[in-house]
Amino acid sequence: MLKKLFGKKEKLSEEVIYAPLNGDVVELEKVPDPTFSQKMMGDGVAIEPKDGKVVSPVNGKVIQFFHTKHAVGIESESGLEILIHVGLETVNMGGEGFEGHVKEGDKVKVGDPLITVDLDLVKEKAASTITPVIITNADVLENVEKKYTVGASNETEIMTTKVKG
């Protein structure tokens, strides 16, 4: 539904978010951390990763890259802000087992490498490898369609959104 704002129709653009990791896409509510499962940071999905290669799920730019390299924020070309948080309680690892391939301000395209992570080390030292993929500025969304897929690859669509413009 298009809303009228000052006599003009509000434009909606569609944004596809691809899997930033190879693995199984699961419901955010299944993440064993209330910050994510109760959607305190925003809506999205989570991925049970099969490998440690994290790539960009959208075309856009890096707006936040945590010094511990466990999480990255990207703003898509349509204005979505997407947080990829690798594992749970991985901040406590202090960057051990994580290698960053980007810095804040870098432009990225779908599939560009963001982070490489040693999943075996995460399994040993953190609570979980499950990786939430969150839209942190849901106020710009008209709607979001989530796609739960077993064996997603970096070319698998995991969310399709309509972004208010």
Rank of each mutant, 00 (worst) to 15 (best):
D118K: 12
K61W: 08
F65D: 03
H70Y: 13
S76R: 00
E99L: 07
G100I: 00
Q64I: 14
I115F: 08
G42A: 12
A46P: 01
D51F: 01
S78C: 11
D120F: 09
E124R: 07
D43L: 07
F98S: 06
N92V: 13
E96F: 14
L121P: 04
V72H: 01
G111W: 12
G60L: 07
V62M: 07
H67I: 14
K50N: 06
F65A: 13
N92L: 15
K107T: 15
L80T: 02
M93T: 00
K61A: 08
G60P: 02
I47L: 03
V86R: 06
I115E: 01
H101P: 03
G60W: 06
A46L: 07
K109I: 15
F36W: 10
S56K: 05
I47H: 03
T116P: 07
T90V: 11
D120T: 08
V62I: 07
T68M: 12
G44D: 03
F36A: 09
V54R: 02
I82W: 00
D43P: 00
S56A: 14
D51A: 02
Q38N: 13
D118N: 15
S76A: 13
V117S: 04
G105S: 15
V72E: 02
V54F: 01
V91N: 05
E75L: 09
L114K: 02
P132Y: 06
F65H: 07
D43N: 05
